[in-house]
Amino acid sequence: MMIRIAIVVLFSLSVTVRAQQQTTDEIRMSIYFGGGSYDIDSFQQQSLLHWLDSIPNIDRYEVHLISHTDPIGGKRYNEWLSKMRSESVEQLVLQRNIPQHKISRKDWGLDDAVYSNQTYRGMQMNRRVDVILYPIVF
Rank of each mutant, 00 (worst) to 15 (best):
I40Q: 00
T69H: 01
Q44K: 03
R28K: 13
I55T: 07
G35I: 15
T24V: 13
R60C: 08
S54C: 09
W51K: 05
E62T: 11
T23M: 10
F11S: 04
R60F: 11
V63I: 14
Q22A: 13
D53L: 10
L65W: 00
Y32Q: 08
G36S: 03
S47Y: 07
T23F: 09
H50F: 15
E26Y: 13
S42R: 08
S47R: 13
I66P: 01
S12C: 03
S47I: 04
I58C: 03
R28Y: 14
F11I: 09
S12N: 04
I72W: 12
Y38W: 09
T16K: 11
I72D: 05
H64I: 07
I55R: 05
D59M: 09
D39E: 15
R28M: 10
F43I: 15
Q45S: 09
Q20P: 03
D59S: 09
Y32G: 03
F11L: 15
Q46V: 03
Y61A: 03
S37R: 03
F11H: 06
E26W: 10
S12I: 02
H64C: 08
Q22R: 14
G36D: 15
V63W: 04
E26L: 14
E62P: 00
Q22E: 15
E62L: 14
A19C: 09
R18D: 13
V63G: 01
D53V: 07
H64W: 12
V17S: 07
T23Y: 06
D53R: 09
V63Y: 01
L48G: 02
P56M: 05
Q21H: 13
S12P: 03
I31M: 00
T16D: 11
D41Q: 03
S37F: 00
L52W: 00
V15E: 06
I58P: 02
L52N: 01
S12V: 07
Y61M: 03
I58D: 01
M29A: 10
Q22T: 10
F43Q: 14
A19Y: 13
L48F: 00
L13W: 05
I58W: 02
S54D: 06
G35C: 12
F33L: 08
L10W: 12
H68W: 04
I66D: 05
G36I: 03
Q44H: 05
R60Q: 09
Q45Y: 05
I58R: 07
Q46R: 12
N57H: 10
I72P: 02
S30L: 08
D39S: 14
V15Y: 12
S37G: 03
I27M: 13
I55S: 04
S54N: 10
D59A: 02
I27L: 15
N57T: 10
Q20S: 14
Y38Q: 04
D39H: 06
W51I: 09
D70N: 08
Q20M: 10
Y32F: 10
Q20I: 12
L49E: 10
H64A: 14
W51T: 04
N57F: 11
N57P: 01
V17E: 12
A19Q: 12
